[in-house]
């Protein structure tokens, strides 16, 4: 049971760091991309709005495994010869971004129109109203769902193991082939993921508490 960890410490650590790396990079990329698409989705320009809606509907209704499959097989065909880590970042981020976009949009939708009207009647400029009234409230409402989406993204990153990325789940194949009991191998890997996801949950809970306002 413990020898799995003792004997494979380097391998597991390597995988753990790989998952962390994937988490950080994909987290940043999908937040940026998600915000961009959300901006499209709520923009006053119809074509951008159509694009945003189409993107969200397409990616939310496509299995992540299929996106990985299409990226890993399709990009070489487009003569984009990137590393598998980059493929994984593209697949995971484009997928997560669709959900993040929706979280941001529903955050914006929670701000009643009266808030903007009140701001205007107080003589605030449009920029002031947006930056001081609307976006802070929308952001506060969007933080919890975005947090859980990022946690879901960590869990989804395990799929990258099937596409040649060095990460936590991917280390299991080597250990099992080397004769370690799959029960303990996978339990320790699960523990590795739990460390990441549960500490993210805790951080999120703390953040929510900080953002909470007494109404």
């Amino acid at each position: 049971m413990l020898e799995v960890i003792q004997d494979n410490w380097d391998l597991l650590r390597h995988g753990f760091v790989g998952t962390l790396k994937l988490t950080v990079v994909c987290g940043i990329v999908s937040l940026l991309l998600g915000t961009l698409i959300a901006a499209c989705r709520v923009s006053p320009v119809p074509p951008l709005r159509w694009f945003g809606t189409a993107y969200v509907n397409l990616f939310r209704n496509t299995p992540l495994t299929l996106i990985f499959f299409a990226v890993a097989l399709g990009f070489p065909k487009l003569r984009f010869n990137l590393s598998y880590f980059e493929f994984a970042v593209i697949a995971l981020s484009t997928y997560t971004a669709a959900f993040i976009c929706e979280a941001i949009r529903s955050g914006i939708n929670t701000v009643p129109i009266g808030q903007a009207e009140a701001a205007r009647s107080l003589g605030m400029s449009f920029t002031q109203s947006l930056s001081q009234i609307v976006l802070p409230q929308a952001g506060r409402a969007a933080v919890p769902p975005i947090g859980s989406l990022l946690i879901a993204m960590v869990r989804n990153s395990a799929i990258a193991s099937a596409f040649n990325v060095t990460e936590l789940m991917g280390t299991s194949a080597e250990m099992v082939e080397n004769g370690y009991k799959s029960l303990w191998v996978l339990l320790w890997i699960a523990v590795g993921y739990l460390i990441i996801t549960l500490s993210m949950s805790a951080a999120l809970a703390a953040l929510e508490k900080k953002l909470a306002v007494v109404r």
Partner: peptide, 14 residues
């Protein structure tokens, strides 16, 4: 909190 893939592999291998 656990990846579904890890769970599926557990059920497949263990």
């Amino acid at each position: 909190a656990m990846p579904l893939l890890v769970l599926i592999f557990m059920l497949y291998l263990v």
